[in-house]
Design a binder for these strands. Sequence first.
DNA 1: TTACACATTTAGACAAGTCTAAAAATAAGA
DNA 2: TCTTATTTTTAGACTTGTCTAAATGTGTAA
Lengths: 221, 221
Amino acid sequence: MLLTFTEENYLKAIFKITERAVKVASTNMVAEQVNTSAASVTDMLKKLSDKGYINYEKYKGATLSPTGVKVATQLIRKHRLWEVFLHDKLKFPWEQVHEIAEQLEHINSDDLISRLDNFLGNPRFDPHGDPIPNSEGKFMLRNQTSLDMVHSGQRVLVVGVTQHSVDFLKYLNQLKVKLGTAFKVMAVTDYDKSITLEKDGAETLTITHQVAKNLLVKFQK
Amino acid sequence: MLLTFTEENYLKAIFKITERAVKVASTNMVAEQVNTSAASVTDMLKKLSDKGYINYEKYKGATLSPTGVKVATQLIRKHRLWEVFLHDKLKFPWEQVHEIAEQLEHINSDDLISRLDNFLGNPRFDPHGDPIPNSEGKFMLRNQTSLDMVHSGQRVLVVGVTQHSVDFLKYLNQLKVKLGTAFKVMAVTDYDKSITLEKDGAETLTITHQVAKNLLVKFQK
DNA sequence: TTACACATTTAGACAAGTCTAAAAATAAGA
DNA sequence: TCTTATTTTTAGACTTGTCTAAATGTGTAA
Ligand SMILES: [Mn+2]
Ligand SMILES: [Mn+2]
Ligand SMILES: [Mn+2]
Ligand SMILES: [Mn+2]
């Protein structure tokens, strides 16, 4: 059963929408995610439902069927492996890998992906710290917290970002914050929830709540 | 000016047809190359002509315009660089790289290709011995002869193949003939033009004219 | 429980790429 | 040159994915 480029993108969109709190993907949410009109989404949901990739009821939204989940996770696996390739091997900055991976993820060859995985050393996380599902679709979970949940005195290590926009990632570059950067939390301001951090070496920086919220960290002993 | 996957394939087909003896690509030749009906080709030739990528006159066939040549050579450059990646880095056998490169060649990113080229060490030839055009579209030429043109006593080095079918390449694998293999020509049979070769080490093998014709060699002093 | 806003679906149309069958042009042979 | 054979183009239709505008359904707040 060969899926088109477009069908794959819809399935990935539904996966992304329903992977957290949201249980059912509404037409408008999907439209927003794949950047099309609601009318087009309705058509596609009907088609994907007919093909058995999603559960869809008129006016009630869609969820992925088991096959749909399989397709979506494989797509995410491919996307993230390519991102690792682009970042680690071709030295692309982390804010540029997503767009190209968006194309590469649709290349169709199981052998290619298993060899790529191997070539990259079977990485478990992509350049943004997102887990790479294994070939069975299992995601490796990790203890992590949003940086806006920490308290003064705690030591943390940056392990991911929850926002992938080019602007945000470039701003982090500017702050010299990247995956693996270690911080000690110096102060959390009550007034605006801004956080002052001290880098491993010595320099300190202050970030807004907005930034902290989008940084994932894990605690250091 | 963004071209679709399909338009790119047509331009590459016309390039391939017209790169040797044939001066003008006929509708049927293109149809054969891209594996579609002649009617579909006529439509596409009209479109590509309107967009300025080819010169096309009804009933007379098509040739690439300068822009068309540029697109086609860039596509071939991408195709061959990806083949090198698949072969050298991911260790795909040479008979498997073409099909996957057929997809990868359409990935759209100049930066990606220049980084890939660099990562691969700016290779000048692909895994089949075909030259990789540089970013300006120039092909590196090389002294080479078809193996059916050699004479007894000459020493040659395999540098390429003119047939890329999986069957042919697998047959060469079986004969342990690959790029870089050195031979001394032992005998050329008058009767059926079969050729007996001695490998660098010691073993000899006999190949048919059919095979010899499709092997490109360069002479050794 | 009745409006009304908002979300969703339907209707109808369009572009890209494809097909088959029929018509027209060109090439080849007698 | 006249008559076929072959190639190429046109006509008309279909699929996929998209759109806008109109119709319909759902949920909320008076
Ligand atoms: Mn990404
Ligand atoms: Mn994509
Ligand atoms: Mn990522
Ligand atoms: Mn190839």
